[in-house]
Amino acid sequence: MFGMPDLSPEDRAVVDFAYRETHLLNADRFAEWITLLTDDFEYRVPHPELRDDPRSSPYSATSLLSWESVHSLRVRFDRLASEFAWADRPPAFHRRHLTAVRVERRDDASWSVACDELVARSRTPEPPQLVSALREDLVRLVDGELRLARRTVFLDVDRPDLAQIALLF
């Protein structure tokens, strides 16, 4: 593919996997998306925290804006399917755009995946949002299938509004 001439077939499959699972989120196909997670999957959004020194990390080492597991995500999706998901009825317009998907093989059965992500969301009366983030994933082979084992979202926003972090990245 353009810009990624030397991907092995295995690495290529991991890039395809990233696009496929992100498409499922865009399409609200959560029941299918959740089957792509490992049992020990964790989703974290580190808390942005500005420090004076540009060499230090702009994210807190301890505090998080979000921390989800398969169990907690299942509860989230069950709520979305219920009649009582007030904050999601009517639902928001939303779309995730991935660019520059990078894969790096860690060992025989796992890959680090990073991509730049732009998430658009709009739902009156909240102003339309366009949020950029670095998304870092760990992808593993489980019984011969690719599975998402970890996702960490580094927001490019120093003081997020709730409307900017309402979606899964």
Partner: peptide
């Protein structure tokens, strides 16, 4: 974890309250 998932920034408990406020 309980705090994040019940009363965190992206927890749906809070989001349903915030929805009413906005």
């Amino acid at each position: 974890k309980t705090m994040q998932r019940q009363h965190g920034a992206t927890a749906f408990f809070e989001s349903d309250d915030m929805e009413n406020f906005r």
